[in-house]
Design a protein around this nucleic acid. Sequence first.
DNA 1: GGTTAATCTTGACAGTGTTCATATAGAAAT
DNA 2: ATTTCTATATGAACACTGTCAAGATTAACC
Lengths: 208, 208
Amino acid sequence: MTVVTNPSLRRRKPESAYHHGDLRRCLVAAGFDLLEKHGAASLSLRQVAQSAGVSPAAPYAHFADKTALLAAIAAEGFVAFKAALEAGKAKTPAARLEAMALAYVSFARRHPALFRLMFGPELADLSPHPELREKAVASFAVLQEAIAASQGRASDREAVMTAAWSFVHGLAVLMLDGRIAQGADEREAARRVKEAARRISRGLHRPT
Amino acid sequence: MTVVTNPSLRRRKPESAYHHGDLRRCLVAAGFDLLEKHGAASLSLRQVAQSAGVSPAAPYAHFADKTALLAAIAAEGFVAFKAALEAGKAKTPAARLEAMALAYVSFARRHPALFRLMFGPELADLSPHPELREKAVASFAVLQEAIAASQGRASDREAVMTAAWSFVHGLAVLMLDGRIAQGADEREAARRVKEAARRISRGLHRPT
DNA sequence: GGTTAATCTTGACAGTGTTCATATAGAAAT
DNA sequence: ATTTCTATATGAACACTGTCAAGATTAACC
C-alpha cells in the first residue's frame, strides 16, 4: 500500500505550528490508517482530525464534506487497486481472467474496509468527486484491457467486460461478506477463485 | 413487497394506548418504509420510533440494538427476495440462469437501499441474528436449487453455485452503483443482463 | 385483587457532522 | 520593513444520533 503513512508527515512542524503545512495529505493518510485499523463504522471526521493533531473543524478548510475526505481516501485506494491488478500478467485469456480474479479478490480480502468504501453506497455517485472518478476508471481500464481486448471481436468488448467484471466483483464481495468460502484461508480461497474463473472463462468469448 | 405496511397497524389503539400492542412489527414496517423512501443514510432509530408514534427509547424493549432492528428489516427483505427469485421458473439451464439473473437484478434495482442493507457490511456477521440468517439462506437455497441442481454432476454443485452466484450478485451490485449500464432503463438493463447471462452459462457446467 | 413482568416515557450522556465568528501566520504589496 | 491580504486553524455552538438508567403505566396471572 503506497499511501503516505510516513510519520514525519503526520506533523510537519511538531511544535507551535498553527499552520500545519500539509494537512490535506496528512488527513487522508490518517483516515486511511484508521479505516484499515478500526473499520469504517468508527471512522469519524473528528477522530481523523484528532489523529492528525488538529481541531475538529480543521478538515473543512480542505474538504467540503466528510464524504469528500472519504472520496480522497477511496481515490488512494483505487491507485493501490490498479497497481494490484496490473501485477497479474498472463498469456492466455483464461489465465488472464484467473489472474485478475485472484488479484481482485486478494485485494478485497487484504483491505476489506477500504474495498467496501471504494465500492460502497456513500461514494456511488462519482459526479461530485472528479479525482475519485478518474482513479476509479483508471483501475477499471486495466480490467478492460486485460479481459476484453484479449480475444473475441471488438463488438463483443463491452458485453464480455460486463460478464467478466460482474463475476470477479461478485466473487470478491460475496467472499468479503463471508457468503462464500466462509473462513477459508488464503490457499483454499485461491483454489475456489481459480476453479470458478476457469468455469466462467470458458463461455465468455464468441456470442451464440 | 409483502411487508406489513397496513396503516391500521401503525397504531393499534390510536388514542391513549400506553402499550402499543404490536410495536415490534410496527417498527419493522416503519423502518422498511423510511428505508425505501429516504435511503439508509438517514434511517435513524429515533425517526423510526417517531414515525411509529412512540418515544425514542421504546424500540429497546424489542430490539437490543439499532443493528437488530436493521436485521429484522433485512430479514423481511430476504423473504421478499426469495419470492422474487421463485417467480423465475424456466426449463433449460441457460434460461434458468437468465431468469435468476433478471429477477436478482430487478429486485436490486427496485429496492436499492433494502438490497444494500441485506448485503451490506453492517449485517455481514449473521451470527447475532439467527432469524436473518435463516431467511437469507432460504433465499440462497432457491438460487442453489435452480442453478446447481439443473445439470452437471453432484460434485460440481458447489463450484457451479459459486461461479453463478458471483456473477449474478456482481452484476446486481455493479448496476446498482452505476458502474455498469449507467442510466439505462429497464428494457436496456434487461437486455444487458440476458446477454451476459448467456455468455456465462455456456461455460458453467462440466469441468475441464 | 394484588403481585409480577413486560412495556413505554422521561431525562440524560457522550459522540457525531457542520457552521460561524475569531485568531493566526505566511505571502504579497507597498 | 511595514502593511495588507488570504489561506488556514481554533473555539464554541447547534442539531442530531445511539444508548442507558430510573421511573411510570399497564396487561397478565395466581
